[in-house]
Design a protein around this nucleic acid. Structure first.
Lengths: 340, 340
DNA sequence: ATCGCGCTGGAAATCGTTTAACACTGCCCT
DNA sequence: AGGGCAGTGTTAAACGATTTCCAGCGCGAT
C-alpha cells in the first residue's frame, strides 16, 4: 500500500500538501493539485483511516449492540440506525455486536468497542450492566438506548409506548369477549417486556378481570422455548381463552403450540402478539398484533446519537417515546361469531 | 483517557514494560507486574486499539457486506459469521454494511472498509463490481463470497446447491400433478437466483413440460413489488396452477397476491418457496419450501476467511457448496385431493 | 522604503502503541 | 578469570496520517 509519503515523493511536494489536497483543508494551487492527484492515481493511494483516526481522535464508527439481528425487530432497528448514519456522516460505519441478552457478553462487547475508540454507541441494554453503563455515560462518550430504558443510568433513550399499546391490545381482547386471558412473557430483563406486562395487567384490573396465576408463564426468548411454554399454558385447566404474547418469539411459539395441541386459532383460543410481521396478513390466522416502529426507533436513536457526537446537543439526556399501533386482524376472533 | 505513558510513569517503569505486561509478550518479574497492574487499575487504563492497529497493521475487524439484514436469510448469515468470528479471534469485530443490491453502494462500502484497514471481507456480491473485486482479490486481502459466486473473480466461495434444490422442488410440484407452473423471479444479478431459475427450467424440460413465457415474471426483490408481480401472474389466462418463488420476498408477496385475488392456496394454486421460515409450520397454508443453510453458509464463509487471515491456508481459492433441503408441507397441495 | 496581508508551500511535532536493539545483573561452566 | 546465557528492563524508532508553525513571494497601501 502506498502511503502519503510515497505520494508526496512522486508528486514532488510535502506530505502536508498531499493531505491538504486529499481533504480540501487548505487552498492549493491548481498546478500542484494536478500533480498530487496524478500521483495518487498512479500509486492507487488510499489514505489509511487508522492513522487518520489516531491523529484526529475519532473513528467515524459507531457501535450497535443488540441482542440478536435474527430478531426482525432488531434487524429493522439496525437498518434505521444505519440509514441515518449514512445520511449524516457520509462515511460512518457500523460495528455490530449481538449480545444475546447476556450481561457478560454485553460487557465484553462494550470493552471491545471502547478499545476500538468508536465515536458512540446505540444499544438495547440487556440489563445487569447498570454500573458499567452509568460510568460510560458519565465519561461523556455519546450513548443512547433504543427499545429499552435502563433504570439508574442517565442516557438518551428512545422507546415505544409499551404500556399504552399493551393496554390497547388487551382491551381489544376484552372487548371481544375474552375473559380468561393468559400471558406468555419473554423472560428478559428488558424494560419493554415488563412495561408490556404491566400494561396488560393494568388493563385487566381496570376491567375488573382476574388473572389466574397459572395463566402467566415466562419463557426464554426464542421460538422453541415459547412453544413449550405455550403448550404448558394450554394444558392448564381451565384453559385460557386468549393469550397475550409479549414479543414476536412468544407469538410464534404460541401459534405453534396451538397447532401442537390440535386447537384452532381463533376459534378455540385467541392469540394477540406484540410485534407485527410483514407477512402477517398473508397467512392464516391473520395475526392481530401491535406493530412497533422498530425502524423509527433506530432512526431516532441514531439521530440523538449524532446530535451528541456533533455537539449540536449537550446537557441533560432526553427520552423519546414513539407510538406503537394496534393492527386488528383475525387471530383474536374479531368479526367472528364466538362459540358457546 | 490515560495512555500507556501515564501508566508507565505512575508505575515507575518504561512504556515497553507496560506493553509487555498488558500483552504478556515477554517475561516480567512478579513485582513490576504487580506495580503495573496497580497503575492500570488506578488510572482505568484501556489500551488504544487504534494506535495498536496502526503499529501492528491489523485491526481485528472484518467487514460483512450483504444486501439487507432485514432479509432473514442474511440475518442468519451474519449470525453465522459473527459466531465463528467470536470463536476464533476472541476479539474480532464485525463491520456491517447493507448494500441494497446496489452496485454503487457496494463499491462505496468497499472503499469505506478498505480505508478502515479491515482484516478481511465476507460478502454477498450484488454484481456489477467484478473488476473492483478482482483487483481486490488479487491484492491479497482475504475475501470470501457467501451465498453467491461471482464470475471472473477468483475468491473463496460458499454457496448452496441452488440448481439441485430448485430441481427437487419443481419435481415435487410436478409429481403433485401441477402442469402450468409459473416462475416468480427476484430481479437480481445474484448467481443464486439465476441458478434457481435454471434448476427450475431444467426440471421442467426434463419432464417434458412447457413454460408459458407469460408465466414467468420478474420483480424487484421486496414483498410489495412481489405482491404486484404476483397479481400480474395470477391474472394471465390460463392461470398457472403453481408458482415457483425464487426467494423469501417473492414467496411472501406471492402469498399476499393469492389473497388479494381471493384465491386459496393450495386449493386454487400451489406456491413453492425458496427459503424457509421458522414459523412456516405455524400458519396456514403451511409452506412447502427449500430450507437454505443460511447460518452455515455464514459460518463456513467466515471459517474460510479466518483460515486465509491466519495464513493457515494459502493458494488457489476453494469453492464450497452446501446442501439445501426440501421441506414438504401443505402449500403445494401434498396430501390434497386435487380438484378437477 | 516599509509594512501588512493573502496565497502557497514545507518542516516537524504529534497521536498511542509495539518491538528491535541494547544493557545490566547474576550465575553457571570451564 | 572470563565467556555465555537467562532474566528483566529501557531507549528509541517505527506505523501513517494531520496540523501548527513558519517562511517566501508578490502586491497594494502608506
Amino acid at each position: 500500500m502506498a502511503t502519503i509519503k510515497d505520494v508526496a515523493a512522486k508528486a514532488g511536494v510535502s506530505t502536508a500538501t498531499v493531505s491538504h489536497v486529499v481533504n480540501g483543508s487548505r487552498a492549493v494551487s491548481v498546478e500542484t493539485k494536478k500533480k498530487v492527484k496524478a500521483a495518487i492515481k498512479a500509486l492507487k493511494y488510499r489514505p489509511d483511516g487508522i492513522a487518520r483516526s489516531l491523529r484526529v481522535a475519532q473513528t467515524g464508527t459507531i457501535a450497535v449492540l443488540i441482542s440478536d439481528v435474527t430478531n426482525p425487530f432488531f434487524a429493522d432497528f439496525v437498518r434505521g440506525v444505519e440509514d441515518t448514519a449514512h445520511e449524516r456522516g457520509e462515511r460512518y460505519n457500523l460495528l455490530l455486536c449481538n449480545t444475546e441478552e447476556n450481561t457478560a457478553r454485553e460487557r465484553r462487547a462494550i470493552d471491545l468497542v471502547l478499545e476500538r475508540r468508536i465515536d458512540g454507541i446505540v444499544m438495547a441494554p440487556a440489563g445487569g450492566n447498570e454500573e458499567t453503563l452509568a460510568d460510560l455515560a458519565a465519561s461523556g462518550l455519546p450513548l443512547v438506548f433504543g427499545d429499552r430504558k435502563l433504570k439508574g443510568v442517565a442516557a438518551d433513550t428512545v422507546v415505544a409506548d409499551n404500556v399504552a399499546a399493551a393496554g390497547e391490545l388487551t382491551r381489544h381482547l376484552i372487548s371481544l369477549g375474552h375473559r380468561r386471558i393468559g400471558l406468555l412473557q419473554a423472560d428478559l430483563a428488558s424494560s419493554a417486556i415488563h412495561e408490556r406486562a404491566d400494561g396488560f395487567r393494568a388493563a385487566l384490573a381496570e376491567a375488573g378481570l382476574k388473572l389466574d396465576p397459572r395463566h402467566v408463564v415466562k419463557s426464554p426468548s426464542n421460538i422453541a422455548a415459547a412453544e413449550e411454554a405455550g403448550k404448558a399454558l394450554l394444558d392448564v385447566s381451565p384453559r385460557p381463552d386468549a393469550i397475550f404474547c409479549t414479543n414476536n418469539f412468544m407469538t410464534l411459539g404460541m401459534m405453534q403450540a396451538v397447532i401442537d395441541r390440535g386447537l384452532a386459532c381463533p376459534e378455540d383460543i385467541a392469540v394477540a402478539g406484540f410485534d407485527d410481521f410483514p407477512w402477517a396478513a398473508a397467512f392464516r390466522p391473520r395475526l392481530t398484533a401491535v406493530a412497533q416502529p422498530a425502524y423509527e426507533i433506530g432512526r431516532e436513536a441514531a439521530t440523538l446519537l449524532f446530535d451528541r457526537i456533533s455537539g449540536r446537543r449537550t446537557g441533560a439526556p432526553i427520552q423519546m417515546v414513539l407510538n406503537a399501533r394496534l393492527i386488528v386482524r383475525d387471530s383474536c376472533g374479531a368479526g367472528l361469531r364466538r362459540r358457546a
